[in-house]
Computed example of a mutant assay.
Amino acid sequence: MTPSEWRDLLDAIERDALHGATWLTEKGAALLLSMLQKDAPAEELETAAVSLARARPMMASLFNLANGFLWAWSRNKDMAAAFVRDYLAGLRGEGSAAAQKAASILREGDTLLTHSASSLVEKALLQAHAEGKGFRVYCTESRPKCEGMSLAKRLCEAGIDATLIVDAAAGEVARRCDKILIGSDGIGSFGLVHKMGTMPLSCLAKSGGVPLYAVATSQKVWPAAFAKPVEKEKDPKDLGVEGCFDVENRYFDITPPEWLGRFLTAEGEMTWEGVLKRYGREAIHPLLISG
């Protein structure tokens, strides 16, 4: 694989606005394995890993993939390849287990609200439906890419009672729900990173007494020493408007710890503190600290 080829793949991961963290992490892992198999020079491998960690700063699983890879690579090539394969297996296995935990908290007749289109939330809802549970799901449209619309369609086609709402209605609808079930793009000492609109929804859930659950795997937890990420500005054209005004377009927000609910992981239900204590113990590789 030539430098231009792997840089093109990294650029594609950085620009991708349709897929979630799990899908992009699998693409990043495939890139690293391909470079290892083709005996890419050490400098190129390290540069690619650092670039991968920074390509999507709000997605913890990409950072953790790069971080673990660099530590393993510092030992030898075989350990680096083994780490990537184990990481992928863990991501998939924990994801299925966490989705099962999420499905287990759903009760017959529940009314749920979800935001954006988490693959783990979708798995949980499909699993609960397969178990014969009847429930209703409100899906936010999740602008600007409207992935919530696609989720609502998939749930409906699977036979689940799904209702699409505009993002601005989330607060009002949440008051009528038994639970709020969301995904997680990253969990750190600063709180939860998820699709824009999660922070106010979490605040309302906390003040209104609506249980909020975030489905997560260990790969979504940054090391405790990781600093708060800064999202790159997105294309203003996403909003579909033009004018003499400025446009600020961001896909993610950060919910502070005091507004967080519970987390559903492969190991069960946890608090934010418990998640960080259990999964946030990795050291950050020196190449990812500087610059």
Rank of each mutant, 00 (worst) to 15 (best):
Q100R: 14
L288T: 06
P3C: 00
Y251G: 01
A205C: 04
D235L: 07
F226W: 15
A168E: 07
G197Q: 05
G183Q: 09
L192A: 09
G197D: 06
V247A: 12
Q219T: 13
A40L: 03
D78G: 07
L120C: 00
L32Y: 04
K153W: 14
I160F: 10
R154E: 15
L112W: 08
L36V: 01
G280N: 03
K77A: 13
A216N: 08
A117W: 12
R92N: 11
K38P: 00
T22Q: 07
P286W: 14
A117Q: 13
G209T: 10
E172F: 13
T255F: 10
G191D: 07
G171D: 00
D235R: 05
S96R: 09
A174V: 00
V210E: 08
A29L: 06
M149A: 08
R250F: 13
G274R: 04
L91M: 12
S118D: 07
A224W: 15
G132V: 08
E26G: 15
V166M: 10
R54Y: 09
L120F: 06
G132S: 05
G188S: 11
C203T: 06
D16N: 07
T114P: 03
K77T: 15
R250M: 04
L45F: 03
V210D: 09
G159H: 12
V247S: 05
L112T: 04
W23L: 06
G68T: 07
G280M: 02
K145T: 15
T22S: 14
T111S: 10
A55W: 01
T271Y: 01
Y138M: 01
R281F: 04
L288C: 06
E231M: 14
L62E: 06
W6S: 00
G186C: 06
W272P: 00
A227I: 12
E233A: 14
L62M: 11
W222E: 10
E242V: 11
A162M: 07
L106N: 04
A97Q: 11
Q100A: 13
L18H: 03
L9K: 09
A21F: 06
H115W: 14
M199K: 13
L151N: 10
F226D: 10
D8W: 05
K145S: 10
C177M: 07
Y251A: 09
I187P: 01
L10Q: 00
R85M: 11
S142V: 04
P236E: 05
A72I: 10
L52T: 02
E242W: 08
A283M: 05
V121M: 08
L33A: 04
M59I: 08
A29Q: 03
S290Q: 15
T47C: 03
D167C: 00
N67S: 03
L212D: 09
G95K: 05
G243R: 05
K133L: 13
A42H: 01
L276A: 03
E157R: 15
P3R: 00
K123I: 02
S184L: 12
S74G: 14
W6G: 00
V50H: 03
P256G: 09
E157L: 14
Y251H: 09
M79E: 15
E122Y: 02
R136D: 01
E108K: 04
F252N: 00
L36I: 08
A98G: 02
S207D: 07
I105Q: 03
V230I: 15
K179N: 05
V84N: 04
